[in-house]
Design a protein around this nucleic acid. Structure first.
Lengths: 247, 247
DNA sequence: ACAAAAGTGTTGCGATTACACCCATGG
DNA sequence: CCATGGGTGTAATCGCAACACTTTTGT
């Protein structure tokens, strides 16, 4: 938002649902709008990270730009999942005023392309280092957000749920080495359901791209868990001879 | 495209991949651009049906509008599947010239929201009744299209393939009553693979929303096939107690 | 020794696959 | 009576779900 006004396309934006996992809960990264704390929309002072795009900017680049500014990371895992373009999605009044004020652009309608993004909380700037107005929120306990951002998150989460059934993208949320338990909890919080640990383990470990490391937890007051890593190359190889449709 | 120029939003369009099924092949509806037959882009004279959207128009309404003009149908089955927004997706030159000329709008970049749509060929206007410049093309033998429309179709088809594995949306492509064989061929052409007819039949008919009718084919030189219909109400009912995630 | 989480196998069931012949009709 | 596609059943296999106890460590 520090860019010259004339470079923005006033009709197009991107919004990012940034998921993170702290080991227990699925988190979403929200921005607190600076000017909005005072008034009646106190309960809508949070929004998704996002921005208008530059006139000649790629949509995905715009999303990467927004996330880079926010987290300091590059090449973030991003997936486009929907477009939100109802003419009234930005209600007249405070939301609109804020947007026009903060972008300096006369806006009559914005279509936003929504991405979800998976990042490792430990790799991104820590809470204190994040831009002062960004913070992680539990996905199950979100405040009422600006614009239609609650529904964008809802839909993004649905798409994430669908996606993890088919592709091992969860690993984007985990540190490079992890225990089976960690992934299981991650699946559980994303799917919103408990999983049987024996069956989960079997299913997970039979995948050739999950590599057992020669390292164990230490300093824990119980049997230490083995560490594993995700081997992306093997995964991509294995996809080649995978038949998709089991009809 | 017969609307006053000033109502268009010059940055936003919708494009529709309209699928149809003639009993043998999966078809896509393409538009022939009027002015473009003469020159070097003779091989790119086809495009997807689509249009810029009005300044205050809903994206999906815009898609419905485009399809209504084209086919005469209302309430067409539509599903948004992606956004295409690379700044260079409309190459400088003929494509751009044509677009600026035909819309009367000065365009520097268009982001298009892509929908796929399923229609019953028999319900839509017949080939002769369709706007003179629209025609059905075999999805496996498409010409080189304008803009990035070939990749839009490709992705739309992928999404359709994914979708029919989970939802009985195929019926949108079939007449109200149909034989098992017809659906099987439809699945086969969408998935691009042969299916065992005994297994297919079992799987299909155990679904409670496929209703056997008291009608048979007549006038065929073999055992006449029974007709079935799709009961949408029963389908929606049955979804309620369906558990999605079989993890 | 105790608490706490890691790790391990088996069995039954339901779903999926593979596969070949008889049936009803029109010509 | 023949050609054509419609319609049917079974057996083997695979994958999934359910389920409880032993192991390893720190305190």
């Amino acid at each position: 938002m520090q860019h010259p006004v004339r470079n923005f396309n006033p009709h197009l934006s991107v919004d990012c649902v940034v998921f993170g996992f702290d080991g227990e809960q699925l988190k979403v990264l929200l921005i607190e709008r600076p000017g909005s704390v005072q008034k009646s929309d106190r309960n809508k002072r949070y929004k998704l990270p996002g921005d208008l795009i530059f006139k000649m900017e790629n949509l995905e680049s715009a999303a990467q730009r927004v996330l880079h500014q926010l987290t300091g990371l590059e090449n973030i895992f991003l997936r486009q999942f929907s477009v939100f373009g109802k003419p009234d999605r930005i209600p007249e009044g405070d939301d609109l005023n804020w947007l026009e004020h903060s972008t300096g652009v006369d806006i009559n309608r914005v279509v936003t392309t929504a991405y979800y993004s998976l990042i490792r909380i430990d790799k991104s700037k820590t809470a204190k280092e994040l831009l002062h107005n960004a913070s992680w929120h539990n996905v199950n306990a979100l405040p009422a957000l600006a614009f239609d951002h609650n529904s964008i998150i809802e839909k993004g989460l649905e798409c994430l749920r669908m996606a993890i059934r088919f592709e091992p993208i969860c690993f984007e949320l985990l540190p490079g080495r992890f225990t089976v338990r960690q992934i299981q909890i991650l699946y559980e919080v994303i799917l919103g359901q408990q999983l049987d640990n024996r069956n989960f383990r079997k299913k997970l470990l039979k995948a050739c791209y999950i590599e057992k490391l020669d390292e164990k937890q230490s300093g824990v007051a119980h049997k230490p868990a083995n560490y594993y890593k995700f081997n992306k190359k093997k995964y991509i190889e294995s996809r080649k001879d995978l038949l998709y449709y089991n009809f």
